[in-house]
């Protein structure tokens, strides 16, 4: 079996020592990368080389490497999670690039996502938005009712599940020209808004989560649709419209 030719690449990577220091783009040459390796494996190879040379490796977020956890980020060649659609960075493979390519690798850029180091940003703003209302209150004192005892329209259940597939990676914020978190927030609101269990706290949920997102410093939504295109889970703009409706209704009632 003939082996595919290795790729020689120029990497332009954002290096930043810590949250306070000023970062800059550094250039690295990397050779003979297998087109079958994943993007993160390519970075692993780079880091091994850097460590061998006694240099500080490039820090980046990753965990499951299966496209589920939402840990990996990276703004690659002008797009969150790189050139592929409906994938996270860990699912991106080097066959998406050509020999001799220059690849820009940057962290998510948003006032609400401060850089921790190099390519790692602090996404705890998303946690605080969740805490503001992304839950339902269930009495668990021993007499919990089986969730399946409540009949739910199949269409609504499917829609709620679609919204719940959001992994909170932050690609929507990274893609948005205003670093708006509308797609994330609206998905988290929708997954409850569509279900009977979510109705009790629906009003407070939308008001508090939207308010928290703005407090964190995420921008307004310009309806460009960039988030929907770049979302690895294909979360629809439908969610944002639902959030806008719910917020309006909750505000005036």
């Amino acid at each position: 079996m003939s082996q595919a030719k290795g790729l020689n690449l120029t990497l332009k990577i954002w290096r930043q020592q810590n949250a306070k220091s000023k970062g800059k783009i550094e250039t690295y040459q990397i050779e003979n990368i297998s087109p079958d390796s994943s993007f993160l494996e390519m970075l692993d190879i780079l880091n091994t080389e850097l460590i061998d040379k006694g240099e500080i490796p490039v820090e980046f977020d990753h965990d499951c490497r299966e496209g589920i956890c939402g840990s990996c980020s990276l703004y690659i060649n002008g797009e969150p999670h790189g050139p592929g659609k409906r994938i996270t960075t860990c699912q991106l493979h080097m066959r998406s690039f050509k020999d001799g390519d220059t690849i820009y690798i940057e962290p998510w850029r948003a006032a609400a996502f401060p850089i921790v180091k190099d390519l790692i940003v602090d996404r705890s703003a998303f946690d605080r938005i969740q805490h503001a209302g992304g839950y339902i209150s269930v009495n668990t004192s021993g007499n919990t009712v089986d969730a399946n005892a409540t009949p739910i329209d199949k269409h609504d259940a499917d829609e709620a599940f679609n919204s719940a597939t959001c992994i909170g990676c932050g690609a929507c914020v990274a893609a948005c020209k205003n670093a708006s978190a509308s797609l994330f927030v609206s998905a988290k609101i929708s997954q409850y808004a569509l279900l009977p269990q979510g109705q009790v706290e629906a009003k407070d949920r939308v008001l508090n989560m939207v308010k928290q997102a703005e407090k964190e410093g995420f921008g307004p939504c310009s309806n460009t649709g960039a988030c929907e295109v770049e979302c690895p889970k294909g979360i629809s703009l439908e969610n944002i419209a639902r959030m806008n409706r719910e917020f309006l209704a909750a505000s005036i009632s």
Binding site: K12, G78, R109, A110, A111
Partner: peptide
């Protein structure tokens, strides 16, 4: 204001 530092690319 929501994105004070722009992307390089």
């Amino acid at each position: 204001k929501a994105r004070p530092e722009k992307y390089a690319y």
